[in-house]
Simulated assay, not measured.
Amino acid sequence: MIRILGADKEKQLLGLFDRGDASAMDRLYAEYADYLAGVCYRYVGNDDDMKDVLQEAFIKIFTRIGSFEYRGRGSLKAWMTRIVVNESLTFLRRNAAAAETPINGDTPDTADDTPATEGIDAATLMGMVARLPEGYRVVFNLFAIEGMSHKEIADELGITPSTSASQFFKAKRMLARMINEYRRKNG
């Protein structure tokens, strides 16, 4: 068994694929499955759906890896992340879940929409993001985590840039309330 070490792990993994090594898929999966599952969960938010979407993403990764062009450290991870994000968005589009989610008018005008998150572990924060309504969660992830602009998000989701900005604002407000509630309970 070849052990993959150090900064060149992506290159080493790609070399296994190039040589037709039977263990290449298993090793790539073992190295990146948890990370990619986390990316997928940020969008899909349901364990069963996330597993289905992730499976479709890995099928695409494995069938297209021969055409992947290595561009330096991190490029393989970024490429796979983009496939997972695209598969997640495709799933959400198919289920019409990325449309604007109404908030029932309960957003307070004075809510602190940028509460401090220090002292809250990543799993708790990701759980809060996962509890956002799907439309909010998708825009929040694309804007705050993937770094897309509201225009890019609008083009990707078939909404207007102002709808994207509104969804993001409402997501931040809802997250702020969750964080403040968490702090009150765990203070």
Rank of each mutant, 00 (worst) to 15 (best):
D48V: 15
G72C: 10
A123M: 11
V39F: 02
K51E: 11
R73N: 07
E69R: 15
T90A: 10
V44L: 07
V44A: 08
V85I: 15
M148F: 09
R184C: 00
I2H: 02
T110K: 04
Y41K: 12
P108F: 10
D106H: 08
Y136Q: 15
T114C: 05
E152T: 11
Y32H: 13
F143V: 15
Q55G: 08
R93P: 00
M126C: 05
L76I: 12
A78L: 13
M178T: 06
L89K: 12
I159Q: 02
A57R: 05
L16I: 09
A98E: 11
T107R: 12
M174R: 15
G72S: 08
V53E: 01
I120T: 09
M25I: 08
I179D: 01
I179A: 01
M178E: 13
P161Q: 02
A122C: 03
T63S: 13
A97D: 04
M178P: 01
G187F: 00
L14Y: 04
K77M: 06
H150P: 10
K172N: 06
G187D: 04
R177K: 06
D52H: 11
L5F: 04
L89R: 14
M25G: 03
S149K: 06
F58G: 07
A144N: 12
F169S: 12
L36Q: 09
R64A: 09
K151E: 13
K11T: 08
E69I: 14
S162V: 14
R173A: 07
A165F: 04
T117S: 03
P115F: 04
K185Y: 02
A7V: 12
R184M: 02
V85T: 15
D52G: 12
A116R: 14
V39K: 04
P108I: 07
I145P: 00
V44Q: 07
I120M: 02
A98H: 14
P102L: 10
M178I: 03
N46I: 14
D106W: 10
D18F: 03
K77V: 15
E56W: 07
P108S: 10
I59F: 04
A96S: 09
G15T: 11
G158R: 04
M174E: 06
M148L: 15
T163M: 05
Y182D: 01
R183C: 01
A57D: 06
F17R: 03
Q167R: 09
I145A: 01
K77P: 00
R173H: 04
A111E: 13
V53L: 03
N104D: 12
K172D: 02
A154F: 07
R173P: 00
Y32K: 12
M174D: 01
D155V: 12
A78F: 07
M148N: 06
A98G: 06
A98Y: 09
G158T: 08
G15Y: 00
M25A: 13
L89C: 09
P102N: 06
D49C: 06
E118P: 00
A154M: 03
V139P: 01
A22K: 15
N141I: 10
G135R: 08
T163S: 05
R64G: 15
V139F: 01
